[in-house]
Each structure stands twice: as structure tokens, then as C-alpha cells.
């Protein structure tokens, strides 16, 4: 035996640490290969990966709470929808306009509200989400109200359009990977460390020279831009947008994904989005009991992996540790 049990288990643990993310990536690969309707489900999962990755920067890294991220997805979605379908802009230009509008909006909203703490900030962001929804309903001359906007072209540059399901899914996968990579780089930068620091203690962060307010605002704007991009991708994939698609259910879904995947971890958003996206499909045969099984599954995940699936290795470690002494007793 060249490998001691300790090194084997530590190698296993290292492998286990990446297993959930690899599994999620495997599902994406499977969907690309399979090409059935799973493409749609995984495609939505990837769009949500981006949305949740943004939320994770604000909530997981910076420790703040926002219930209003749907507002920024809505701005991206409607900017893309209106500018491409109504005014015939190229998708990329429309997406950029959406991002700029979102960033401005996030700044204007974030500047006053980020002085609020805890529940007040959460309530303020909640209100923003509700207001944008109401605007989407009422501003009929632009948004077409509940009737929605259809005829939104597929993504493409110049004459090249992403029409096939597979091409779209591959594109979404690339976008999701880029988002997560950006999130990883951000987390391991000076800025990212400062965010995690201020989420731990704003005073301690300040005493180290961190400009807490400015960083919170910047994190808020970055998370809003992530949301805007996900909104843009959504309308180009579906070709249609209506207010119901950017309502509170989006926020609830994103929160579920964030906590199930693992808040504060870089790959958590991908894992959460894929698992929560696929869960209803894998239990579709339960029909009327689908919601019940879905709820039960969520509760089980959160009980047995309270840090989310991304930190499943911690749970296994803990289990092994509690069992370890029993071995030592044996002769």
C-alpha cells in the first residue's frame, strides 16, 4: 500500500467537493446530446443560473437581501423585446441598451435604499419589483400590457441567427460559464474579499479601509446587470414576454435555487438552477402530487444539506467524523 487511507480519503473529499458542479455540467451536456424537450428545461436552468449568480454576488458575497431582482430582469427583457421587435434593433445593441438602462436604474434605486439595513432594504427592493411589474402592466403603449410582446427575433449577429435548439443551448451554456467565471474572479479579487468582509461585519470592514456603501452599491449594480442579461436571453429564446413572466414567482424560484445550490458558493447558482429546473420534470408523473413531492424534496435537501448542494462534501465530512471514533475502538 503506497497510499495511506488518509490521503485516499482526502483525495476522495476533494473529488466530492466538485461532484455536484460536475454533475450539473453533465446534465447540460446530456441535454445538448439528447436534444428533446429537456433542452428547454435546461435552457431555462442556464438562464436562471445567470440570474441567480447575480443574486449570489449581492446576497451570498455581500450579505445583503434583494427581493426585487425581477425588476432588473424585466428591464433587460423589455428593453430587448421592445427595441428588437418594435424598433428592429439588432439584439446585441438592444441588450447593451438594456444593460445600461438597468445599471442606471440600479444606481438610482440603490443609492438611497442601500443606506437601509436588513429588513428595510429587503422591503424596499420588494417594492421595486412590484413597481416594475405594475409598469409593465400599465404602460400599454410600450409593453402592450398583459398581451405581451411577441415576434422577438432569435439571438444573432448580422445574418447569423441561433435558431436550432442545440445551438441556443450551447450558447446559453457558454454564457452561464462566463457568468460563473466572472463571479469566481470577482469573489477572489480584492473587491470580492471586501464584499465578504462587509457581509461579516461592516464595522470591521470599514476599519480595514473598505468603503462599505460604495461597495454595496457596486455589488447591487453588478447583480442587476446579471439579471438584465438573463432577461435579455430569456426573451430571445422564448420570443415572447409578458408581465407574468417577470413577476414575484421569478424571485421565489431564484431564492430556492440559491439556497438549494449553496448561497455564497460560486457554482451554487448553477447547481441550484439545474436541480430546481429538473426536479419538477423528474416528478411530472406524480401529476396532482407533483407540488407535494417538490416541496418535500426541497425540505429534505435543506435539512440534509443546509449549506446547499454545493457544500455537500461538508455534510459527508461531518458524517465521517462522527463515525470515525467507532473505528478506533476496534482492536
Amino acid at each position: 500500500m503506497t497510499n495511506s487511507p488518509a490521503t485516499i480519503s482526502s483525495k476522495l473529499m476533494a473529488a466530492l467537493r466538485h461532484a455536484p458542479a460536475i454533475a450539473a455540467a453533465g446534465m447540460v451536456a446530456y441535454a445538448i446530446a439528447d436534444g428533446g424537450y429537456i433542452v428547454t428545461v435546461v435552457g431555462f436552468g442556464l438562464i436562471y443560473t445567470i440570474f441567480v449568480a447575480g443574486l449570489n454576488i449581492f446576497m451570498g458575497y455581500a450579505g445583503q437581501t434583494s427581493f426585487g431582482q425581477n425588476a432588473f430582469a424585466a428591464i433587460g427583457a423589455y428593453a430587448s423585446a421592445v427595441l428588437t421587435a418594435t424598433y428592429g434593433w439588432p439584439p446585441l445593441l438592444a441588450a447593451l441598451a438594456g444593460i445600461v438602462a438597468t445599471a442606471i436604474c440600479a444606481f438610482v434605486i440603490g443609492y438611497p435604499t442601500l443606506r437601509l439595513k436588513g429588513h428595510y432594504l429587503a422591503m424596499a427592493t420588494l417594492a421595486i419589483g412590484l413597481i416594475i411589474y405594475e409598469v409593465a402592466v400599465q404602460w400599454q403603449s410600450v409593453t402592450n400590457g398583459y398581451m405581451g410582446i411577441s415576434g422577438i427575433p432569435a439571438l444573432g449577429i448580422g445574418h447569423y441567427e441561433l435558431l436550432s435548439d442545440r445551438a441556443q443551448l450551447i450558447f446559453l451554456a457558454i454564457m452561464a460559464v462566463l457568468s460563473l467565471a466572472a463571479s469566481w474572479l470577482l469573489r477572489h479579487s480584492r473587491f470580492g474579499r471586501a464584499l465578504v468582509a462587509l457581509s461579516g461585519s461592516e464595522d470591521a470592514a470599514r476599519a480595514l479601509g473598505i468603503n462599505v456603501r460604495q461597495y454595496k452599491l457596486t455589488a447591487f449594480i453588478i447583480s442587476a446587470i446579471y439579471a438584465s442579461i438573463s432577461g435579455t436571453l430569456f426573451v430571445h429564446i422564448v420570443g415572447f414576454i409578458s408581465p407574468e413572466m417577470i413577476g414575484m414567482n421569478m424571485v421565489i424560484l431564484a431564492f430556492t435555487m440559491l439556497y438549494v445550490g449553496g448561497i455564497g458558493t460560486t457554482t451554487g447558482p448553477l447547481i441550484g438552477a439545474i436541480v430546481i429546473g429538473l426536479l419538477p420534470e423528474s416528478i411530472r408523473s406524480f401529476k396532482d402530487y407533483q407540488d407535494l413531492v417538490y416541496g418535500a424534496a426541497l425540505i429534505l435537501i435543506l435539512i440534509y444539506a443546509p449549506g446547499g448542494i454545493a457544500s455537500l462534501d461538508q455534510v459527508v465530512k461531518k458524517l465521517l467524523r462522527t463515525k470515525a471514533p467507532a473505528k478506533e475502538v476496534a482492536p
Partner: peptide, 8 residues
């Protein structure tokens, strides 16, 4: 109370 950032 030290102000250590525990998760980091």
C-alpha cells in the same frame, strides 16, 4: 470581539 471574517 476580534471582528474575524469566519467563512474566509
Amino acid at each position: 470581539g476580534r471582528g474575524i471574517f469566519g467563512p474566509m
